[in-house]
Amino acid sequence: MSDNVVKFKGNGTGLIMLLDQNTPYPKLEAAIKARLAENAKSFPAGTVIKTSPNGFGQKAQAAMMAIFDEYSLKLEFSDEALVRNAPAARSEHRAHRDMPAGRDERVEEMLVINRTVRGGEEISSKSSVLICGNVNPGAQIIAGGSIDIRGTCRGVVHAGAFGDTEAFVIADNLMPVQIRIADLIARSPDNMEKRDKAERAFIKDGQIVIESIER
């Protein structure tokens, strides 16, 4: 019976507990206990399980959390469990998690590439990317954070690929085929001149703008 009342599911970003909306709380609690007794061993200690908060009072929430606590599991009440089938909403959540509220708290990691990235190569990273060399036409750089190129950029660059709209692209010579930041795309003008100054591309008022910088 408990099989239909309580379900655990993976949604791509974590585990979710689905509860039958029509079952009254005391019965639910029993079902959860039964399910956990069966399955808790398959979850490593500390695993976070999310469930939708709808309809539960604070008391019920606390009681449920206590049950999970016994098995060293953590129960979180989150709306994410509701919107698991809407991919757009999910990716938004991911972006939030990648970028905690305070910018300083953010774990800054960086991928450093110490060579020229040639046509046909793709560099992909969740973190920021620093390239000491050129990015040639036909190459692609995809970064969760920002991209810094100490050389000429002629390929396709995508900063903030997981939704970070604060990400930017810097290059000594910024002349890419396309610049993508978060979900915005800008393409190069059809005849581009070479400029001698380093430039930075970032999002301003909902579009990608480029300004020259000193460095």
Binding site: R115, R118, G119, G120, E121, N136, P137, G138
Partner: peptide, 12 residues
């Protein structure tokens, strides 16, 4: 030139 670039990458 584009293909040469790719080839240099492959050689690397």
């Amino acid at each position: 030139v584009r293909d040469a670039d790719k080839i240099i990458g492959e050689l690397g």
